[in-house]
Amino acid sequence: MSTVMHSQQRPSTDPLVIAGTEYHSRLLVGTGKYRDLEETRAATEASGAEIVTVAIRRTNIGQNPDEPNLLDVISPDHYTLLPNTAGCYTAEDAVRTCRLARELLDGHDLVKLEVLGDETTLFPDIVQTIKATETLVKDGFKIMVYTNDDPIIAKHFEDMGCVAVMPLAAPIGSGLGIRNPYNILTIVENASVPILVDAGVGTASDAAIAMELGCDGVLMNTAIAGARDPLLMASAMKKAIEAGRDAFRAGRIPRKRYASASSPIDGTFF
């Protein structure tokens, strides 16, 4: 009798837990750079992401008030919205952005803190990020912090009370992949809060590598939105994250310099 294996739902025994909330997708996605809101909606859905980042910007006063809004397609009822402080270069601007976001989202206090240092690299300004973290933690925010791939700084953010630490793989939007896997590994090994790679992923294998290193998740935007076919890339990333996580949990074989035969030597007849 043959048994047909049906594709199974992801086991719920391996959730991603951030600030006490369980998530079943380890892929977090941004909503920038899409052609239109319909593409944003479709790609976000195809990614299977549950946590979705948004930016906070001035309302265009001149615009038709009936014009569709991001939150019409990415509903706070279906997704955990993660407002970010992208574009902020000072702690003050980042804190102000988080407070506006909390008001906008009815008291929702999970935020992605990023304070940038320079327009060419978009590397984080760690001094300003630490200042903002101090204020926001006191103010009751749950902070997922964007930082360098520096294990010492990553630990500091954890000790300061961040609910997740998100080192970059490479500069934002660069698609260069994980430039410093050993640092990411060290950050993961030292951590007792979730570590998510944020920024720099270019394609599915980059995401899988992050997960194989033991990261708890990956946050990306450009790699999907900038792909020739964003929906297909969203689906590819979803699979890569799942495959990488499974491989990490399964435990890879050690690397060896020489071969090791897969078929037994015993019983050969030649």
Partner: peptide, 10 residues
């Protein structure tokens, strides 16, 4: 006065 909303972003 500043009036802000959520828009697409990473």
């Amino acid at each position: 006065v500043e009036i802000v909303q959520a828009i697409g972003g990473g």
